[in-house]
């Protein structure tokens, strides 16, 4: 292996992957909170439209959506996105739809009595959401968001298909140049694993801080998984809602 491989291809690729993950995660979080809260709206039309959005983007294949944004959008709407932003858009819209289910689930899991107490104190609906419901719901969202973030990180590899020079793209180039597939793919698999590990550690830190902020001790995961939590985000949302209803019936 030459030093040039790292300096010229892999390190810039890692940087692109980190940027992609970060931008897509921020975009997806905005979508998730927007859609997730809108799905609890009193207006049926808002619930219907946001529900439609979620079903469409959960039903979509992220890779197909990426190709669509990359090839069809410029032709259909005369608007060419920079590949990087087409990728962020595709990932953010898709994972935002998944994330909105987490947000909705966590909001629904806050004890109804908390809402009633907030009504009894004459908070406006917006104040109820901001001051009472969300501060309790957000710590419960972090573990499933962690899973989703790892899924998002893995999905960033798809962008290599639309010529964004991420880690996977760098590996392709390197393979073509050197012909050595084993080494390069082994290296980048480890790179992804390390990134996933770091992300998970960061999210754990966030979870601990968030839980401390509401007077709860952080939950120790006893089974000792090496990196991530075990269940799919959907199941974990349900699981955490069970925990809330069982434990926090204040």
């Amino acid at each position: 292996m030459t030093a040039g491989l790292w300096e010229n291809w892999l390190l810039p690729g890692v940087w692109i992957t980190i940027q992609l993950t970060l931008y897509s995660a921020v975009f997806a979080a905005v979508v998730a909170f927007g859609i997730g809260m809108a799905r609890t709206s009193r207006l049926w039309i808002v619930r219907f439209l946001t529900g439609f959005y979620v079903e469409v983007f959960r039903g979509t294949s992220a890779l197909v959506l990426m190709f669509w944004l990359f090839f069809v959008m410029p032709l259909a709407f005369q608007y060419q996105l920079v590949p990087m932003w087409a990728a962020v858009l595709a990932l953010g819209l898709t994972y935002g739809a998944y994330g909105s289910e987490i947000v909705r689930g966590a909001i629904a899991a806050v004890a109804p009595a908390q809402r009633e107490a907030a009504i009894a104190l004459s908070f406006t609906p917006a104040q109820r959401m901001r001051r009472v419901i969300l501060p309790q719901a957000i710590p419960e969202m972090i573990p499933p968001f962690n899973n989703l973030l790892i899924e998002l990180l893995k999905a960033t590899a798809l962008v290599s298909a639309v010529s964004v020079a991420d880690i996977t793209f760098a590996a392709q180039l390197s393979r073509l140049a050197t012909g050595d597939s084993l080494e390069i793919y082994a290296i980048i698999l480890v790179l992804y694993f390390v990134l996933a590990f770091v992300l998970t550690r960061l999210m754990r830190l966030l979870e601990r801080r968030a839980k401390a902020g509401i007077g709860q001790a952080p939950v120790k995961s006893g089974k000792g998984p090496l990196v991530t939590r075990k269940l799919s985000s959907r199941q974990e949302t349900e699981q955490s809602s069970n925990i809330i209803t069982a434990g926090g019936a204040q």
């Binding site: 908390q114 009472v132 501060p135 309790q136 509401i214 926090g248 204040q250």
Partner: peptide
């Protein structure tokens, strides 16, 4: 309320 309903956060 019967169940107090203090805000735990």
């Amino acid at each position: 309320f019967q169940q107090f309903n203090l805000f735990p956060n």
